[in-house]
Design a protein around this nucleic acid. Structure first.
Lengths: 94, 94
DNA sequence: CGTTTATTTCGATAATGGTCGAAATGAGTT
DNA sequence: AACTCATTTCGACCATTATCGAAATAAACG
């Protein structure tokens, strides 16, 4: 997971440029931290995992392990610090 | 060229998710309307044209023909109307 | 300890996308 | 009309990416 000051605009933009991942981001925005699996997506488990990895490695989300499941969350503060207004603009338009 | 209310978030995000295209957008922001060819880019003419097409078809830019050359411009107002704050956030971070 | 549950990793496949050079277009110029 | 200049289109190529199913991992639970 990249540090807050290591987030790259191109990488973040790429991460936010896919319909499945935009759904994930919207869902995390609406529902806060939640398990990977409960986000409603029309893709297989492995594809879901793939998209979550892209978001995580771009620095858009953080994952923590809690028992059997992994809770995913938006990195709101870091994103806002590094790219002010970007996430809000995307969420507002999504 | 898509109408202002037909702009799609995913398409616009994809258009803004490439280093060459981000350079173009930054350059158009800094220098206003200008000919395709004078934007400094380390790619061939055909690749340049390709990227400008992606931006145009996503609705990020408009092109008009003036004599031998084509002047490109950001669609600031339409983007702001449809995706408030998005372009500014990208430009601020770029 | 074997089983279930949640998620990831692997390997393969198919689609998309960036890049180029060569040829085409199209407006100005001579 | 021939020529130049700015840009686009075409065709090809290679890299990246989205997708899946199957196998691996890892924690909880019986």
């Amino acid at each position: 997971m990249p540090a807050a000051d290591e987030l790259e605009l191109v990488t973040v933009m790429q991460a936010l440029s896919d319909p499945v991942r935009l759904t994930i981001v919207r869902e995390l925005h609406a529902g806060g931290e939640q398990a990977c699996g409960i986000i409603p997506l029309d893709v297989s488990a492995s594809t879901r995992s793939h998209h979550l990895k892209i978001l995580r490695e771009a620095g858009v989300t953080v994952t923590r392990v809690v028992g059997k499941q992994r809770l995913v969350q938006l990195r709101r503060a870091e994103l806002e610090q590094r790219f002010p207004g970007l996430l809000d603009a995307v969420l507002r338009s999504a």
